[in-house]
Deep mutational scan, measured.
Amino acid sequence: GYDPNALYCICRQPHNNRFMICCDRCEEWFHGDCVGISEARGRLLERNGEDYICPNCTI
């Protein structure tokens, strides 16, 4: 089920109804503003069928 207190992202904070994006490599969720991806950019990636790779996986 959905846990509203689950911690995500590099900031280890809950979802808090903020835009989030999922890394296509590790499948962890990240707040867009923490990883520099706007909601519009996230939608563009999705539309173009491009993967989002998080900072942890791009090292």
Results as ranks from 00 to 15, higher is better:
D51S: 12
V35A: 08
R25F: 08
E50C: 02
F19W: 10
I53C: 12
G1L: 15
I37V: 06
P4T: 06
W29L: 15
R43L: 11
G32C: 09
G1P: 07
N17P: 05
F30M: 10
F19M: 04
E50A: 10
R18G: 13
V35F: 04
Y52P: 06
H31I: 01
C57F: 00
A6T: 08
I37L: 08
R18C: 08
N16H: 13
R25H: 09
R18D: 05
R43M: 11
D33W: 04
F19K: 05
C22R: 13
R12C: 04
W29D: 11
C57K: 00
C22D: 14
N17C: 06
Y2G: 14
R25S: 09
I59L: 07
G32W: 12
C34I: 01
D51H: 05
Y2E: 15
G49E: 15
C9G: 02
R12Q: 05
E39Y: 04
I10Y: 02
Y8P: 12
R18S: 13
P14W: 02
V35Q: 05
I21D: 01
N16S: 06
N5T: 03
F30L: 10
E28M: 08
G1C: 14
Y8S: 14
M20L: 09
L7N: 10
G32P: 06
R47Q: 03
N56K: 02
I59N: 15
Y2K: 15
C23Q: 01
N48S: 15
Y8M: 12
N16C: 04
R25L: 08
D33Q: 06
P14F: 07
C26H: 01
E39P: 04
C23M: 00
C11M: 01
W29I: 15
D24S: 07
R25T: 11
R47L: 13
I37G: 06
A6M: 13
S38E: 06
Y52N: 03
I59T: 13
R43V: 05
R47V: 15
E46K: 13
G1R: 06
E27Y: 10
H15K: 06
R12N: 07
R47E: 09
W29H: 09
M20C: 04
H31F: 02
R47N: 08
C22S: 11
C9A: 01
W29G: 09
C57R: 01
C11Q: 02
N17L: 08
S38A: 08
N56C: 10
S38Q: 04
S38T: 11
M20Q: 07
G42Q: 12
R47F: 05
I21C: 07
L45S: 11
P4H: 08
N17D: 06
N5F: 05
G1Q: 05
C34E: 02
G32H: 10
C22H: 12
H15A: 07
L7G: 13
P4W: 07
I21E: 02
G49R: 08
C26P: 02
R41P: 14
R47S: 11
N16I: 07
T58I: 13
C34V: 01
R41Y: 08
R12M: 03
F30Q: 02
W29N: 15
P14Y: 13
I53Y: 14
D3K: 13
C23Y: 00
D24A: 14
E50T: 11
E28D: 14
A6C: 02
P14E: 14
H31K: 00
P14V: 12
G36Q: 10
G42I: 15
V35Y: 01
C9I: 01
Q13M: 14
V35T: 07
R41G: 11
L7K: 10
R18L: 13
E27Q: 08
R18Q: 11
G1Y: 14
N5E: 05
C23K: 03
R47D: 15
S38F: 04
C34A: 01
Y52T: 09
N5Q: 07
R43S: 13
N16F: 05
E46I: 04
N16E: 12
C23A: 00
H15R: 13
N17Y: 07
E50F: 09
E28H: 07
L44Y: 09
R41D: 15
N17A: 09
C23H: 00
H31G: 02
P4D: 15
W29T: 15
C11N: 01
G49Y: 10
I37A: 06
S38I: 14
L44F: 13
H31Y: 01
C57T: 02
I10R: 11
R25P: 08
H15I: 09
G36Y: 08
Q13L: 07
Y52S: 04
N56H: 08
R18T: 10
D24H: 14
W29R: 14
L7Y: 10
C57D: 02
E28T: 12
E50D: 10
P14N: 10
G42H: 15
C26F: 00
Y2P: 13
I53R: 09
C26W: 02
G36K: 13
C11P: 00
N16V: 08
I10S: 11
Y52C: 04
C26A: 03
F19D: 07
F19A: 05
P4I: 06
